[in-house]
């Protein structure tokens, strides 16, 4: 259970990214976060694993207050929360294998991992993760030589190495073409359905949210504008979230 209480984030330049957000997300839910660019979607996701420190409010996860833990405890928590990024955030010059193994660093003895030593068991785990996202044969080539969709799958494999209980996906398909988008979303859906992971996924396209999410949260200027089932978003709600001039675009 993830509970967000009165979450507010004000950046150092005074920009108010999140205003008093309150949410409760039960385990195993696929939640899609929608909203315009700059509405606070990325900030909300990054506050949850504290890549960004919130200004006020609390985030409780499995009974722990993420906003109040020490650095050591935070790393323990982060190990259990996977994150997927719009720009994939792979080290492009490293091999796919190294990128995937890097997801396991939080579990490994720092002394060994600093000299690039990974036990056999971890290498097998990495290959299994790559197998799961269907690119095991690309394990030993450079990440930069993969296509965008393949890179995002490496990102998912890296997350799998963390044995996460929750996945935060920040616009995971915004840099991909429609067909690849669906493939990546299907992998997220698989993790949600088969492994029972909680997925929080910010999306640009409402159609993707409708297709994959159990629940849709809409942010507008840092304020929670809508929280409900995907089917409840009609034309009025849509205009309310995206503005009067917006027209819904389908992604096929």
């Amino acid at each position: 259970m993830l509970i967000i209480q009165n979450l507010t984030k004000i950046y150092e330049n005074g920009f108010v990214a999140l205003k008093n957000i309150n949410l409760e997300i039960p385990d195993g839910q696929f939640v899609s976060i929608i909203g315009l660019s700059g509405s606070g979607k990325s900030t909300l996701l990054r506050c949850i694993n504290r890549l960004i420190d919130p200004t006020a409010g609390r985030i409780l996860w499995n009974g722990m207050d993420i906003t109040a833990v020490s650095d050591d405890e935070l790393r323990q928590i982060r190990r259990r929360i996977g994150m997927i990024f719009q720009q994939f955030n792979l080290v492009k010059r490293s091999s796919v294998m190294t990128n995937v193994l890097a997801g396991r660093l939080g579990y490994l003895n720092p002394l060994y991992s600093l000299v690039n030593y990974f036990p056999k068991s971890e290498q097998d785990r990495a290959l299994a993760a790559l197998e799961r996202v269907g690119i095991a044969e690309k394990a030993y080539i450079r990440a930069s030589s993969l296509s965008g969709g393949q890179q995002q799958r490496v990102g998912i494999a890296r997350t799998l190495m963390q044995e996460p209980e929750m996945i935060l996906a920040d616009e995971p398909v915004a840099s991909l073409d429609p067909a690849t988008s669906h493939s990546v979303m299907k992998y997220l859906q698989l993790l949600n359905k088969e492994d029972g992971l909680t997925v929080l996924c910010s999306l640009h396209f409402l159609s993707l949210a409708r297709a994959y999410a159990d629940r849709v949260i809409a942010l507008k200027d840092g304020v929670l504008e809508f929280d409900g089932l995907p089917g409840e978003i009609d034309n009025d709600r849509f205009k309310q979230i995206y503005g009067e001039d917006a027209v819904e675009v389908e992604i096929s």
Binding site: R75, M83, L90, V91, R93, A102, P110, M161, Q162, L168
Partner: peptide, 29 residues
């Protein structure tokens, strides 16, 4: 590119590990 740093931080890697895996490969050339 700060992306990999962010990614490694989010996995629970410590600061030194983040530097070795996210920064060093980018700067070696």
């Amino acid at each position: 590119d700060s992306g990999p740093i962010e990614a490694l931080q989010s996995t629970g890697a410590n600061r030194l590990q983040t530097i070795v895996y996210a920064v060093v490969p980018q700067i070696i050339p």
